[in-house]
Write a protein that binds this DNA or RNA. Structure first.
Lengths: 168, 168
DNA sequence: TTGATTACCATGAATTCCCATGGCATCCCT
DNA sequence: AGGGATGCCATGGGAATTCATGGTAATCAA
């Protein structure tokens, strides 16, 4: 199995039609996470854009999306939590597919929403990956705000300490 | 199979005859969810308008409708719950079909009910999709009321956390 | 007949498809 | 160890198709 997680960070050109190359490593993960993927075809991707508060696009595999949908279906039908999730993951989202040349098309609406003009940053976050406009990305990366039990100056690996499981 | 859920959000013109284009992605789901659909023909849709409390139209595939009807048939025959459901899903509903050009015709009665004049919003909610008047949609979207353990300012993805299942 | 509904035709814009290129890295052969 | 040759990757442009939307003619019902 090639690769199971979205790992890495890279910059890509966005052309006037909204086409962006997906990092090759990510494409393999997308293919692996698409139940209907067959050799030589184009894997599908889910792009979640969410409401005004989100200034990036969250992307994931079909499998990951199905998992989320199953979770949502288990919640009480009329609860505000369920409705909020449904809106974010069903309404404010987009299912599309990687094209022949490994690209993704971002509709003008989405590009405007997150402020992309001609360049985008892809950032792996393990299960998902994010697409940012270069400017926003550099801004948000500069300031890491500290919360209650979070120290932004501490090396993050410290938070890994504790209850080990150990299967590979 | 192309696409299993109604996902996405889009605006469409409604003309004087009540014709609206259904988003192309939704049409594919409708076709897939219509047992009698044959290549080159027009898929059927179910439109549930309900009573005065509903200010949008709920739309679904034939398969989804059948599932609902089966559930209703399992309920105690004279129960008020069953009768309420029956009224909503059998009486206050409409079965129609997508036309050659991918449009749906909304009778004047329904357009008036939900306050559509010249533009409608289609909002996917996974299993179903909804049709709103643009104005109402933007209004209801603006105010997300917070309940007991619901924080409208929190990113909805927080509610996904917890009890993992982990099959594929 | 007359108003309403359905079928048929038309068109611009947006989107998808298909082909083309330059750069890097790798492989392989001698 | 050179030095092609090969192949994948990121990117570009134009052609072909689909989509959304409008209009007109035919059909239906009362």
């Amino acid at each position: 199995m090639s690769q199971q997680w979205f790992i890495g960070e890279s910059h890509h050109k966005v052309d006037t039609k909204g086409r962006v190359s997906i990092p090759a490593a990510f494409r393999k993960v997308l293919a692996a996470g698409d139940p209907d993927f067959s050799e030589g075809a184009n894997p599908q991707v889910v792009v979640v854009y969410g409401d005004a508060r989100r200034d990036y696009l969250e992307c994931m595999t079909i499998k990951a999306m199905n998992k989320i949908q199953r979770k949502i279906l288990k919640m009480p039908p009329a609860s505000p939590q369920r409705r909020a999730l449904q809106k974010m993951y069903s309404t404010q989202a987009l299912v599309t597919s990687v094209d022949e040349t490994g690209r993704l098309v971002l509709p003008a609406k989405l590009r405007n929403k997150i402020g992309i003009d001609s360049e985008a940053v892809f950032a792996g976050t393990g299960e998902n990956f994010q697409i940012w406009s270069t400017e926003t990305y550099e801004l948000e990366n500069g300031l890491v705000t500290g919360g209650d039990d979070f120290d932004p100056d501490l090396d993050p690996s410290h938070y890994l300490f504790g209850d080990d499981e150990d299967e590979d």
